[in-house]
Amino acid sequence: MTITSWLRRAAAISVCLAVLTPTAAPLAVATPSDGISGVTLSQTTIEGRDYLLREITIEPGGSTGWHWHDGTVFGVVRAGTLTHNRADCSLDGVYGPGDQITEPGGPAHVHIGRNLGPTPVVMQAVYLLPIAAPLMQDAPDPGCGYS
């Protein structure tokens, strides 16, 4: 079979599948982070878990985007004011310098962190994750209207 005939056959199969597949709701689109940067200060693996210490900065008007973590994250705000919301749009808290925050792991704990203030939010966070897990899993806006 030539490349051309293979491509035609693949295209025909794709069209058939598209026609025969029931229409579903459009895929949800993740909300990207904006105005955020992070630096890993330390990382180690112990007994099947990765432990990462990161310093995270969210610029004024910036956001983490809606997301969740594969494991628990413990943080402390060093500067600025972090506004933190849950997926039901409720305010989880407004955290200032010295305040601690815990984000439970798992897709049932979608959340967003935003900097609604005039100065950068700087925080340090310890991530307890499965080995090689991403720092976060993107999630769509659950209907709160902000990202």
Rank of each mutant, 00 (worst) to 15 (best):
52 L>G: 03
66 W>N: 04
60 P>D: 05
44 T>S: 13
35 G>R: 05
48 G>Q: 05
47 E>K: 08
61 G>H: 10
65 G>C: 09
63 S>W: 03
63 S>E: 11
39 V>H: 12
44 T>L: 03
53 L>S: 09
37 S>M: 04
40 T>M: 11
68 W>P: 12
69 H>T: 13
68 W>F: 14
36 I>D: 02
70 D>W: 03
51 Y>A: 12
57 T>P: 01
51 Y>S: 13
67 H>Q: 12
65 G>E: 06
65 G>L: 04
56 I>W: 06
59 E>D: 12
70 D>F: 09
54 R>E: 08
54 R>W: 08
39 V>T: 15
42 S>N: 13
38 G>T: 12
42 S>M: 12
44 T>Q: 13
56 I>S: 01
34 D>K: 11
42 S>C: 04
34 D>N: 13
50 D>A: 14
65 G>N: 08
66 W>M: 01
42 S>E: 11
62 G>A: 02
33 S>A: 10
63 S>N: 10
59 E>H: 05
49 R>P: 00
62 G>N: 01
49 R>K: 15
33 S>Y: 04
53 L>D: 03
47 E>D: 10
65 G>K: 05
35 G>L: 04
39 V>Y: 06
47 E>S: 14
33 S>Q: 03
62 G>E: 04
64 T>S: 15
50 D>R: 13
63 S>H: 06
46 I>T: 07
70 D>Q: 15
47 E>Q: 10
35 G>T: 06
59 E>G: 02
68 W>Q: 11
68 W>N: 15
33 S>P: 09
53 L>P: 00
45 T>W: 00
43 Q>T: 09
38 G>H: 12
68 W>S: 15
37 S>G: 07
50 D>N: 14
64 T>D: 08
36 I>V: 03
53 L>V: 15
67 H>A: 07
34 D>G: 07
35 G>C: 01
41 L>M: 14
35 G>M: 05
53 L>R: 14
62 G>K: 02
